[in-house]
Nucleic acid binder design. Structure first.
Lengths: 251, 251
DNA sequence: ACCTGAACACCGTTCAAGT
DNA sequence: ACCTGAACACCGTTCAAGT
């Protein structure tokens, strides 16, 4: 009877890594960090940054942390994956906070918006999630509080103040939404980002060629470089801030 | 030997509906509409409206249309589900088009933004998708063209014109993003929308109670009724438009 | 050639069994 | 009580087989 190896049961492969060499050369299965909510969120964010939100899988995350899938739920104290997303969103909100805002309120709002945009461009999935039903966490609340503090000196109705903060936030988020849409996400499509960009460009040209979009045709020359997009962003932001300031001036 | 019914093979149940009564009472399995791309998109949109994007499943859609899953791919001529989403997004862009825009360019941009917002509030999933890498389709392009046409009389650099249209679009999309976030999506969570709203309210109160958010505390009284949100939207929109107009005026 | 059933390689989450 | 392996009920999509 030939020697047959027994059916290889998985048997705690610890993140699935095969163990080469002698036992002595291998350190005991020691988790790099104790599995905490912070560690889980901290692992999920770069994963989403690099491979898109779809890559953030309970199973994948567990493997990355040398744990079993269901441990994610236990240790992060989440009831569903959506709650993990809530945590990730708030973590990025924390990154958006600015240390020393200028005293001038328009300058302060401007700085906050520019900072927020820079952070969100690094975490494209944030925009995707904010479209869902994300609960406003402590950092998100802090971010809003910070802007309210900046316009506190203004003498205006609470409703007006709320409108000001909302308008600036809203403009920033909208700009990032469109910017990401143009730049494309790193979702590792079947087509690469470059190919997709190329296909899009070509399709736009074909639409313009129909003659149905005469005004768009005149714009086709306008570049959409990174600097160009930065400029478009601040142009609109300054219009908005100027409009706010003008409405507050006594006539 | 007892009479045993043969193992019930599925056998083309046509959308899975059991067939009651005699054959004569049942019309022959006649598809309500021939399976076309339009029919598929037209079925997907109300499904997403009512039950959220997650409910739009190839299998579910097929069942709804009395077809088999893979037929969706064949008949809609899509290579992936993401392409179906692209089609849905563009369909809604078509809904956003306004028939007769006012001659005054600020009025025209205002009307387009208000219309766009109203449409998007009815299709909450649009915001979720636009955060992804959606290709700009014919209707989306038409929507942009329409606004470019509205500001055509202005004498300004092409870049400025692009910035104007982008700023208004951006503001509108950002506002809808936040509005939906507050109103909550119909995703049929484990908690109902009302419960979620309640929990959120309570959590906000607890944050304010810490005393860490003094400026937010002053705002807590501001209602977030539908009319209130409409007002906040137009307030900011008019600031933006005023800022644009002011920057174009010769000094 | 076009269409499609069954199969594949995944998901998030439940739940009963472990400690 | 807390943790987790196996199982469940799904996914989107591949692919070979049908017509």
């Amino acid at each position: 009877m030939p020697h047959r190896s027994p059916p290889s049961k998985p048997g705690r492969p610890d993140a699935g890594t095969a163990a080469p060499g002698l036992v002595w050369t291998r350190p005991a299965a020691q988790r790099r960090a104790p599995l905490t909510r912070e560690a889980i969120v901290a692992a999920a964010i770069p994963l989403a940054d690099a491979e898109g939100l779809a890559a953030v899988t309970v199973r994948r995350l567990a493997a990355e942390l040398g744990a079993r899938p269901m441990s994610i739920y236990s240790y992060a104290r989440i009831e569903s994956k959506e709650e993990l997303f809530d945590l990730m969103v708030d973590e990025v909100c924390g990154e958006m906070l600015v240390a020393g805002l200028p005293d001038s309120w328009p300058q302060a709002l401007r700085a906050a918006a520019i900072r927020g945009r820079a952070v969100l461009l690094k975490h494209p999935w944030w925009i995707e999630l904010i479209g869902r039903n994300v609960l406003l966490g402590p950092n998100g609340t802090r971010y809003r509080e910070q802007k309210l503090a900046a316009i506190h000196p203004l003498s205006a109705d609470p409703e007006i103040k709320q409108a000001i903060v909302l308008a600036v936030e809203t403009y920033m988020v909208g700009q990032v939404t469109f910017a990401l849409d143009e730049q494309g996400s790193p979702e590792l499509e079947r087509r690469s980002a470059a190919e997709r960009q190329e296909a899009r460009q070509q399709y736009q040209q074909s639409l313009i060629a129909t003659g149905e979009y005469p005004h768009l045709a005149g714009l086709a020359a306008v570049t959409t470089s990174a600097e160009g997009r930065d400029r478009l962003f601040t142009l609109g932001l300054d219009w908005l801030l100027a409009g706010i300031a003008a409405s507050l001036e006594p006539r």
